[in-house]
Amino acid sequence: MAYQLLESFSKSWIFKREDPKVEPEDLAQIHLLDEARAASVWRDYISEAHIHPDHFDDNDWAKKNAVAQVKWEPIWESDDPALPELLLDHVAPWGEDTLVFFCCHNELVFEMTWSVFKRTWKAFLFLDNGPVLVAKKKKQAVQFHSSGMASLLSRG
């Protein structure tokens, strides 16, 4: 894998806040893919035709394969550290060590394990303009919207 320093990300402050707190051992496991690898993951998992979620159309699986919607924002704003229950149920097949990608656009993709994402999701959702969370070799996915809703998706 080809990574770049997390500090090179213009919004790396999201991982250094006290609230929500990202523990140093989790931060060490959050990897920012370099642009070439990010583009490859985006193309393979998200879209060959569009470089940003804002550009998705009805031909993109993320736009047409929503199985449900869930509110994430009320829990994000609360002291509850857990993801919404419906979201957790949707991705129940993911194991703690499943490799996940938090895909913001074709040049901005983060890689970590599912267990790390579950503990740090509140920091990631400062980037709520349509990112898609996918897991390697899994069909479940989640797209987070700035409306405070998440689309529970199936990659087919």
Rank of each mutant, 00 (worst) to 15 (best):
Q143I: 01
P74H: 07
R43Y: 14
F56C: 09
S12R: 12
V91E: 07
H31A: 11
F15S: 04
R43D: 12
P84W: 00
T120A: 14
A62N: 14
M149T: 10
E77A: 14
A36Q: 14
D79L: 06
K63R: 14
L153E: 02
M112E: 06
Y3Q: 10
E48A: 13
E18Q: 15
L152H: 07
Y45M: 11
N59S: 10
Q69E: 12
A28V: 00
P93Y: 00
F126N: 06
P131H: 07
K136M: 01
K63E: 14
E85P: 03
A39I: 00
H50A: 06
I30E: 06
D79H: 10
F15V: 04
V116E: 03
R119V: 03
E77M: 12
D26H: 15
R43M: 04
S8H: 09
D44G: 09
P53S: 03
A36E: 07
F144Y: 10
S146F: 08
P131M: 05
V100F: 01
I30Q: 08
F124M: 07
A28C: 02
I51D: 15
T113D: 05
E23M: 11
S78G: 04
V91T: 06
A92E: 10
T113P: 11
K122L: 00
K16S: 15
L125N: 08
M149A: 13
N59R: 13
G130Q: 06
D79N: 12
L86T: 10
V109Q: 09
E25D: 13
D97C: 05
